[in-house]
Amino acid sequence: MTNVIQVGSLEQGYGKTVVLKNINLTVNSGEILALIGPSGAGKTTLVSTIMGMLKPMKGDVTVLNTAMPNRQLLAKIGFMAQTDALYESLTAQENLMFFGSMQGIARKQLREKIPHAANIVNLVPDLKKYVKDYSGGMKRRLSLAIALVSDPEILILDEPTVGIDPELRQQIWNELHKLAKAGRTILLTTHVMEDAEEADEVMMIRNGAAIAQGTPEQLISEYDVHSVEEVFLKAGRQQDAHTNND
């Protein structure tokens, strides 16, 4: 197991406002890390920093032993953004072809890979439809298929399960576990506790700070509770108590 994503003493923000404080995390190859926290906690900011879209204010981010930001490295990352960024006047197939080529995959290869990626998210029958005729959930699934289509070493998924029904959610998790077993590294964000329970590692973020970190089982026993959700609530109360004491 080699460490694929490494974040050390990261401080990040926009302009003068600081959004993330002292974030440390490591994701090893073949591991799934879930970033969990309420909306506005700073999950997307952290993901963007790991992707190299933002330069760290302080601290450092390395991916595959390369300091981020680094443009070439993006070829090895399959990314799913929180908001569906799709070309509405193109079909799903055309969107997959376009982003796949941008990722650096040859068109011929893409034609072979698209059915597989579409199958994971149950979109095969709808590939020829225009995206503007898609429902919200279908767009979400297409975004995930775009992240998967290049079969990348690293997957970074920002809220991949929002708007996806439970049955399909299970199917997606099965695929993610399969990918992890094959050595892919996966980092995803969520505010759904069920997702956290599926992950190998969990990092809880609240108000820009990491309040708890570890495997779900570790955390449940450490906080002496019965579920990941309770861990989050307890850790949150401790954070509030801490800041009130200051």
């Binding site: 992707m51 879209m53 443009r71 070439q72 490295l73 993006l74 070829a75 990352i77 990314f79 953004a81 908001t83 569906d84 960024a85 799709l86 070309y87 509405e88 982003f99 941008m102 990722q103 650096g104």
Partner: peptide
């Protein structure tokens, strides 16, 4: 505004 530019820049394109 649709975020496709952002998404595009998450690929190794210059």
């Amino acid at each position: 505004t649709t975020g496709t530019l952002n998404r595009l820049l998450a690929t190794p394109i210059k």
